[in-house]
C-alpha cells in the first residue's frame, strides 16, 4: 500500500488545496464535506458527502476508505467552522454548531482513523488549531475555545496513540484569505495580524509546509505539538 491521506473539509479553501497537494506528492487521497465537491473530482481522489459530526457517516466513510485504499497513513482534520461575535450576542446554537464540527468532528474522525492506523502500527494525524487561541482574540470566544479543546485532544491523543506508532500534532494557522475569514471586517483582521511576529496573511504554502513536516516518516519523534504560524506563541 502506498501512502493514503484522508482530509476532512475538502470542498474549498485549505482542504481543497490539501487534496491537490497530497495528490501531487503521490498519495491516494480521500476527503469529505457536507456539500458537494466544487468542480470535477481530481484523478486519484475519492470524495464523500459526510458531516464529520455525524458518527454513523464518519464510521462508514473511514471503513470505506480503508477497504478501497487498503489503509490510511495520514489524517488531516481540516474541517472547521468559525464565527465572530461578542459573547453577549452569541446564540447557544452557534456555540453548539462550532463545537460539533471543530471538537466532536475532530474527535470522531481521529477515533475511527486511529483504529485503522493502530492495526497497521503506523499513522500521522494533523489537527487544525488557530492562533486565535493563544492570542485570546475578542469576538472569537467560542471558536478559540473549540480549538483549545482540539489542542488538548491532540496532546492527550498523542500519548494514547504513541504505543501504536501514531503521531498526533496540530498546526495553528494565522488568517488565510479563505471563506472562513472573508466575512471578518478588514480592521479586525489588520489588528490581528499586527499581533503576529511576522505581520502578514498566511498562505496555503505556509500550512502545507508544516503539514509536510508533521506527516513525514522522519517525524516519528514529534508528537503532541501545536505549531503556530506567524511567530505567535
Amino acid at each position: 500500500m502506498g501512502d493514503v491521506a484522508l482530509v476532512t473539509g475538502t470542498r474549498k479553501g485549505i482542504g481543497r488545496h490539501l487534496v491537490d497537494h497530497f495528490l501531487h506528492k503521490g498519495y491516494a487521497v480521500a476527503g469529505c464535506s457536507r456539500e458537494a465537491f466544487e468542480g470535477p473530482l481530481p484523478e486519484g481522489y475519492r470524495h464523500y458527502l459526510a458531516d464529520v459530526a455525524d458518527e454513523r457517516a464518519v464510521v462508514d466513510m473511514v471503513r470505506d476508505v480503508q477497504n478501497s485504499c487498503g489503509g490510511i497513513t495520514v489524517l488531516v482534520n481540516n474541517a472547521g467552522i468559525a464565527s465572530m461575535n461578542h459573547l453577549l450576542l452569541t446564540p447557544l446554537s452557534t456555540v453548539e454548531r462550532i463545537f460539533s464540527t471543530n471538537v466532536f468532528g475532530t474527535f470522531l474522525v481521529m477515533r475511527e482513523v486511529a483504529k485503522v492506523m493502530s492495526a497497521a502500527r503506523y499513522g500521522r494525524i494533523v489537527n487544525f488549531a488557530t492562533v486565535a487561541t493563544p492570542l485570546d482574540l475578542e469576538g472569537e470566544a467560542s471558536y478559540a475555545a473549540s480549538k483549545a479543546a482540539v489542542e488538548s485532544l491532540t496532546r492527550i491523543a498523542a500519548r494514547e496513540l504513541a504505543p501504536f506508532n501514531i503521531t498526533v500534532n496540530a498546526v495553528g494557522p494565522t488568517p488565510v484569505m479563505t471563506d472562513l475569514v472573508r466575512s471578518v471586517p478588514k480592521r479586525k483582521l489588520d489588528a490581528l495580524i499586527r499581533k503576529q511576529a511576522i505581520a502578514r496573511f498566511g498562505e496555503q504554502r505556509d500550512i502545507t509546509n508544516v503539514i509536510d513536516f508533521l506527516v513525514s516518516r522522519d517525524s516519528d519523534f514529534v508528537t503532541g505539538q501545536t505549531i503556530y504560524l506567524g511567530g505567535v506563541s
Binding site: 480503508q66 493502530s118 492495526a119
Partner: peptide
C-alpha cells in the same frame, strides 16, 4: 483497544 478495533473490522 486493539482487540475491539480488530473485532469491529
Amino acid at each position: 483497544v486493539r482487540l475491539i478495533a480488530a473485532v469491529e473490522r
